[in-house]
């Protein structure tokens, strides 16, 4: 069976000065797949996500999204950097949910969601609002549509942030530790929304320490350490019967 690969990362390498944050990372994510990335702090998980949506420029390697090379245009044997406008266009297809939500504080929940559709995708305001209301209903926040982020709990803000990402109708949504900044009792409401999103067939790459979520929802799990992929495979296999001793050690440490 040939899987329909949506995201393909080949030998992605990223240096900060002398420090190698990513070291020849390879990764395939199929369309509709939920892929979790786990690993200790500083292992390069965020950096990898940020390379995928071009928030960071990688030093070596390449990333394709839906067979489109990110950040460059190939002409024969040369790779040309693409223009800022082209980069913006490529980013539209990749949603991102941040650890610290990063909602626009001067806009209400619904304004946050329609900002991209109306001002980037030029969708009519009326249609965008209707879709936004449907999204708010989906994340259970219909009655908070006209509230500012400062009037919402962390869990509610993160659900609005997920709705904002969905509003762009992206091919994939990247999650960078979406529940790490939340009080423990708010974690599950966000994970439930993500579960629902996964069930609807959205392709997701999720950096998380929530191994329960990884076990129940993810198709594949990748374990990273010091900028390298140590192990990758089916979620059940990596989490229950890891091949690498380091993976096993990490999973045991997170569980205890």
């Amino acid at each position: 069976m040939i899987k329909d690969i949506l995201i393909k990362a080949v030998d992605v390498t990223k240096n900060y000065g002398d420090f190698r944050a990513l070291d020849k990372v390879n990764m395939d994510v199929a369309r509709g797949e939920v892929s979790c990335i786990i690993g200790p702090s500083g292992s390069g998980k965020s950096t990898l996500l940020r390379c995928i949506n071009l928030l960071e420029r990688m030093d070596k390697g390449a990333i394709w999204v839906d067979d489109e090379l990110m950040g460059y245009r190939r002409e024969g044997n040369d790779l040309h950097e693409i223009s800022d406008a082209e980069i913006s266009r490529q980013r539209r297809r990749i949603g991102m949910v941040f650890q610290r939500f990063n909602l626009f504080p001067h806009k209400t929940a619904i304004e946050n969601i329609i900002e991209g559709p109306v001002h980037v995708l030029s969708e009519p305001v009326k249609e965008a609002r209707e879709r936004a209301l449907a999204l708010l209903e989906r994340v259970g926040l219909t009655e908070k549509a006209n509230h500012y982020p400062s009037e919402l709990s962390g869990g509610q803000q993160q659900r609005v942030a997920i709705a904002r990402a969905m509003g762009m109708q992206p091919d994939v949504i990247l999650f960078d530790e979406p529940t790490s900044a939340l009080d423990p009792e708010l974690v599950s409401e966000v994970l439930d929304v993500m579960k629902d999103l996964a069930a609807s067939g959205m392709t997701m790459i999720v950096v998380t320490h929530e191994l329960g979520f990884a076990r129940n929802v993810a198709n594949t799990v990748t374990f990273m350490e010091t900028g390298k992929v140590v192990e990758t495979g089916l979620a059940s296999e990596v989490l229950s019967a890891p091949k690498s001793a380091r993976t096993e050690e990490f999973i045991r440490a997170v569980h205890s």
């Binding site: 928030l55 800022d84 913006s88 266009r89 980013r91 990749i94 991209g116 995708l121």
Partner: peptide, 24 residues
């Protein structure tokens, strides 16, 4: 994080400044 969120929804530099950064 505001700059990053604006870039992530595909805003160009100018639009990001005008709609997200300057108002704040």
């Amino acid at each position: 994080g505001q700059y990053e969120a604006a870039r992530t929804i595909g805003m160009t530099q100018m639009k990001m400044l005008r709609r997200i950064v300057l108002p704040q």
